[in-house]
Each structure stands twice: as C-alpha cells, then as structure tokens.
Simulated scan of single mutants.
Amino acid sequence: MTQAMVEGWLAGGISPDRFTAYHPTRKQAAHGIAMTNRLEVGTYDTVLLGIKPQMLPELAPQVAPLATGSVTVLSVLAGITLDGLAVHFPNASGVVRLMPNLACGVRKSPIALIGRGMGEPLADDVRQKLTQLAAVLGSAEWIADEGQFDLVTALAGSGPGFTYRFIDALARAAAQLGLPDDQARRLSLAMVEGAVALAAASDVSPADLAARVASPGGMTQRGLDVLDDDDALLSLLTRTLRETRDRGEEMGRTRP
C-alpha cells in the first residue's frame, strides 16, 4: 500500500527527494528514492507507518526516536487506534490514521483521515498539509468520529475488492449465458469504467442515472427489477459492509 501511495505522490509531481524509505535489508528503492537500512533521527516532518499491524509493538521503539518534536505520525495500519498510536509515539506532534486503497497509485483513491495532537486537536497547519498531501492521491475525507473509521475502511478501503468481484461476476454471468469468456471480461470491464466515469462527472445521483438508463417495461428495467426485488442488492451490500466493519473492530480489540 505504501508503495502505491508513493507512486501516486511521484505521479502527482512530488519530488523523490522528499522521501526516505526504510527497510532492514533492501538496498535500493524505486524511482530514485533514498533508501536506508538504519532508523536514524533526521530532518523529517512526517513518519508514515506501512508495516503489518502486529509488528507495531516490536518496531515502535525503534521508530519512536524519529517521531519527536514537530514530526507527525501517519498510519495505514488497520485496527490500530489513535490511542494506540499515541501510546507508542508519545513525543510526536500528532498521530493520524489514513486509509487509502490501491487506486492511490493512479491517483484515484478516496483517502479517509482522522487525527489528533497530543492532548489537543491536530494543528490547523498540519491538517491542511495532510489534506493537500492526501488530495494528490485522489480525494481527502476527514472523519469526525473514530468509531466510524472501520465502516469507512470497509467502504473506501475494502470497496475495490467488492467492485472487482462484481465485475468478475458480471463477466462470468455473461459467459454462462453464452458469450466467450475473454469477450465477456472485456465488455464488463469497459462498461464499468464508462459507467463510473459518467457517474463521477454527473451532477445527478447514481440512483437517478439508473432511472435514466431504464425505460418503463424495457430490458434494463427488467434487470433492475431483479436487483431491487426485496432490496436484494441493498441487503447483500449492507451485510458485506457490516461484516467487513465488524472484522475491523475485532482486529482493533486484539491489538495494542
């Protein structure tokens, strides 16, 4: 994920010399980014955590000396709360949870953020800087209630997985009904790409767009009737997001 984020930032015009990557064994980073095998205090303004959440207790003592003074800690670690980050990085100026998805590599990801300073709200200048940084990767959305962060993660972070499954299901359904597999995949992908682009550029809601596509008694309406029967699609996606959110909450309860 952090690699995709850096690729998005570079594609957005941020210079490679703004970054230093740490890895215990790797000797070289892509795109001319400086790589180090030693965690040493430097002139950083932000530390981005891109490790597996269960590794945080082991690695935090090594990272904490870097996160002091005016340094802000950014975390993409699922299940690690602001309280948990503050415990591990008590001398940072602030801690921020940031949740992108892999589309940040092509600068099309929604970026959810929530953060705080140590004992006070996040400084306005830090919030503004992080908003600008996140917006390079797509769009920035600050979340007011951390209790909603797992739901936001389920929607914006895990959502691409659900979307890919939907595209795959459309293609497989068309193939089962007689189209060649490769043609069904191409048509499904191209259709979704166009539909999303139109929805993003439109000044009306997706629900209204669906109504505009359908004619009374026509082909599209017959298909929509199947999806709408007993709110079948809505019920399925509500369950999907609920289960995903609840898993995030479970993970958070078992992590420091």
Rank of each mutant, 00 (worst) to 15 (best):
M1W: 02
T2N: 05
Q3G: 10
P16A: 05
D17C: 10
R18V: 04
H23Y: 04
T25H: 08
K27W: 01
G32R: 01
G32V: 02
G32F: 01
M35F: 02
T36W: 04
V41Y: 01
G42Y: 06
L48C: 01
P53K: 07
P53R: 02
M55E: 09
M55F: 11
E58Y: 02
L59D: 02
L59N: 02
A60P: 00
Q62H: 07
Q62T: 01
Q62C: 01
V63L: 06
V63T: 05
P65H: 10
A67Y: 01
S70V: 04
L74T: 07
I80C: 09
T81A: 14
D83R: 03
G84A: 08
L85W: 14
L85E: 07
L85A: 06
V87L: 11
F89T: 00
P90G: 03
N91W: 05
G94K: 01
V95P: 01
V96R: 15
R97A: 00
M99Y: 09
P100V: 04
L102D: 06
G105C: 02
G105S: 12
R107K: 10
S109H: 07
S109K: 05
P110E: 10
I111Q: 11
L113W: 12
G115V: 00
G115S: 09
R116S: 15
R116D: 13
G119P: 04
E120L: 09
P121W: 15
V126G: 06
V126Q: 13
R127G: 14
R127Y: 04
L130R: 04
T131V: 03
T131A: 05
Q132M: 08
L133S: 01
G138Q: 12
E141N: 11
W142F: 11
E146P: 04
D150I: 09
V152A: 15
V152Q: 15
A156G: 11
T163E: 09
Y164L: 14
F166E: 08
D168E: 15
A169I: 05
L170N: 14
A171M: 09
A174P: 10
P180R: 07
D182A: 14
R186Q: 15
L187G: 01
S188T: 11
M191K: 05
V196K: 12
D203E: 15
D203S: 15
D203A: 13
D203G: 13
A207C: 06
D208W: 10
L209K: 10
A211F: 05
R212H: 12
P216T: 04
P216E: 06
T220I: 07
L227M: 15
D228P: 01
D228H: 08
D229Y: 14
D231F: 04
T238N: 06
T238S: 07
R239K: 14
T240M: 12
L241M: 12
T244V: 04
G248H: 08
E250F: 06
R253E: 12
